[in-house]
Amino acid sequence: MIAALEVVVLVALGVLAVYGLVLTVLNRPPDRISTIAVGVVVALLVVQAAVAVVQVLGGVQLVETSTFLIYLAVSIGVLPIATQFATATDENTGDGPTRWGGTVIAVGAIAVAVAVVRLQYLWDARV
């Protein structure tokens, strides 16, 4: 894990969450900017996860390695799924994305931020 990158990731997640909530307040469905923003944030998370996995494989000993790896997977996977869900057309009702899509992305961003903070705790507890 790179401490500086973690700060960047958390700030980016915060910005993304605020942007999603602003979309809801302005009554707009998720737009191209939100998709790009999610892409950028996920790219940062992938870099962080790749570095962490290389470090773990390279011999860094953690107290709870399996929990750490699960959180890494969660940190990468949640936002793409949340964004897909936020922008999808409901196949049963035919409803397209609504203003609430932004809040769905914000929820995903907050959840990932929690996962990143927990990752840092687990990382700090290395042997």
Binding site: V74, V78, A82, F85, A86, D90, N92, T93, D95, T98, W100, G101, T103, V104, V107, G108, A111
Partner: peptide, 21 residues
């Protein structure tokens, strides 16, 4: 009204995250 409509998607997203965690 479908439970997945409008803000229902937010609720489902939160439930999904809790299901996962």
């Amino acid at each position: 009204r479908a439970t997945s409509s409008g803000p229902g998607r937010v609720l489902i997203a939160v439930y999904g995250i809790f299901a996962l965690s």
